[in-house]
């Protein structure tokens, strides 16, 4: 009788156990929402606000493709605005970043932490699968206010960098329990300093899924410094692998 009871208990608890996902799986599901699973392009408009007023703007064309090995994204970025930076290129190949200026024909290696505009660094504008570069741990479940002032029940994940050269040493990420959408992130330097907070918002159907089309980044120290990243012109793209080589940059023709 005892054995039968134990067996029933096991059978009863099995579906719940199977449905229990690891923090890493939750992170991977969240990555899938932010990042399309096939090669794509989009336009990123960065606007920096100071004391509530637009102070600077940068427009980038972003081409991304998943690596066959490793699952990380490769990204090629073409600067469209401002005029002085037009046609300059930035390449993310593995975790290395290259900057190319057609005027000097010079390819310069950059670090992910180098600032691009406002609170956005180079590492923020390239497509990144956090699941590949970070080890996730579930640190709690919380109800937080999302970027559209709605309450959301979230998993709070603590991400620790497992790869070198990543943009942030540690990330706290809040993910909606009901649909795996990333709601909010806090990003930390290797010294433990909170660098910025990001809210993901303006959810729209893009490339077959509901995805955030805007990220608001708040400076870690000065709340008057806000950077908005808007994503538009989503489209599937057939991008050759050769585009993501440093030696390809002088030949880049755009669309």
């Amino acid at each position: 009788m005892r054995k039968i009871l134990l067996f029933c208990l096991l059978i009863w608890s099995l579906p719940a156990w199977a449905a229990e996902r690891t923090a890493q799986e939750i992170l991977a599901a969240s990555d899938d929402i932010r990042n399309p699973d096939k090669p794509f392009s989009l336009t990123t408009t960065l606007t920096e606000y100071r004391n509530g007023k637009p102070a600077d703007r940068m427009v980038l064309k972003v081409y991304s493709k998943n690596e066959l090995k490793g699952g990380q994204f490769r990204t090629l970025i073409r600067f469209l605005e401002p005029e002085r930076d037009r046609d300059k290129l930035m390449l993310k190949q593995g975790n290395t970043l290259w900057f190319y200026d057609p005027a000097s024909k010079a390819g310069v290696r950059l670090s992910p932490q180098q600032r691009l505009l406002g609170q956005a660094s180079n590492g923020d504008v390239v497509t990144v699968n956090l699941n590949r570069d970070y080890t996730a741990a579930l640190s709690g479940e919380e109800t937080i206010t999302d970027g559209d002032h709605q309450s959301r029940d979230c998993f709070r994940l603590d991400l620790t960098a497992s790869a070198e050269d990543v943009t942030y040493a540690r990330i706290e990420l809040w993910i909606d329990k009901t649909n795996d959408r990333p709601i909010k992130g806090k990003f930390y330097s290797d010294s433990g300093r909170m660098l910025k907070t990001a809210f993901y918002r303006r959810w729209e159907e893009q490339l077959g899924r509901i995805r955030p089309t805007e990220t608001i980044i708040l400076d870690g120290v000065d709340p008057n410094l806000v950077t908005r990243m808007q994503f538009s012109d989503y489209g599937w793209r057939d991008i050759p692998d050769s585009w993501f080589q440093r030696d390809y940059l002088p030949h880049f023709q755009g669309d």
Binding site: G52, V226, S232
Partner: peptide
Amino acid sequence: QLDQIPDMVMEDKPEAPPARGG
């Protein structure tokens, strides 16, 4: 934290993609 973001940022409509694209 959200309240610290100026209304202009939160309510600003997404701008049109740049006229001079690729």
